[in-house]
Each structure stands twice: as C-alpha cells, then as structure tokens.
Design a binder for these strands. Structure first.
Length: 110
DNA sequence: CTCGTGACTCCCG
DNA sequence: TCGGGAGCCACGA
C-alpha cells in the first residue's frame, strides 16, 4: 500500500477512532474521501487489520450493530467493545448518541 | 484491459 | 424489525 493512496487514508482514519468509541464503515469511507466506498473499508479490515494493528473492532455498520456473523467473530468483537466501556442495548445495538465517534475538524472548528 | 470480491448502504415493502 | 434487490467501488489477479 502506497502513501497517499485511498487505502492508506482508510487505514489512517480507522487508527484515529478513539477507544470507547465506534465508527461506521460509511463514516470511515467518507473521512477517507469517498462516502460511497464503505466496501473498501471492509477490504482494508481484511487485509490490513493485523498488519497495521488497526482497532478493527471499533467499526460497526450504520445500525450500530456488529457486522460479523454470530460464531464468526461476533462475540469476540462484542467483548472487545465492552472492555472499552461500550454497552449494547436492545437487539445488541450500540447507542450512537453515546458512542459514535464524532471527529472534530480543528481547522474550521465547526 | 476485464472481472470477482465483500464485516456496506440505500430503498422499498 | 427484517429481508431482498440494486448500487457501489478500490484493489488484486
């Protein structure tokens, strides 16, 4: 993966997610520069989560639910999030009002 | 160059 | 709430 590439920006965005917070695939894609490239985030998670030491567990879908299937990492990811203080409500959904990462643009300060 | 690939998202119903 | 269909797209082969 080269510097300045789209994949690089996705990796950097994921690394910025603070502990105790979560981000959605679409959100990461948007930060990386392409709001419609959510699927690329998935790809990066597969190819670089270990190599780049990414906080992959902090990425969930737009419903605030873990995207992995039960029995295929779902429980593991849920545990990792709970260890960071993130709680799950009804239907195993995460409350975005409390835990969604809201990156602040310091340059414009809103 | 084309093509398959997704831990997605949007839009109904 | 749940599910299917269509759209989506960077990347590797």
């Amino acid at each position: 993966m080269r510097q300045g590439s789209f994949s690089r920006r996705i990796v950097d965005a994921i690394k910025k997610i603070p502990a105790g917070r979560v981000a959605t695939y679409g959100q990461i894609a948007m930060i990386a520069g392409n709001p419609r490239a959510a699927r690329q985030v998935v790809r990066i998670l597969h190819t670089s989560s270990e190599k780049e030491d990414l906080p992959w567990h902090r990425v969930v879908n737009r419903h605030g639910r873990i995207a992995l299937r039960r029995g295929s990492g779902y429980e593991f990811q849920k545990r990792r999030l709970q260890e960071e203080g993130i709680t799950f409500g009804k239907d195993d959904r995460i409350d975005f009002k409390k835990f969604l990462w809201e990156p602040v643009d310091v340059t414009t300060n809103q």
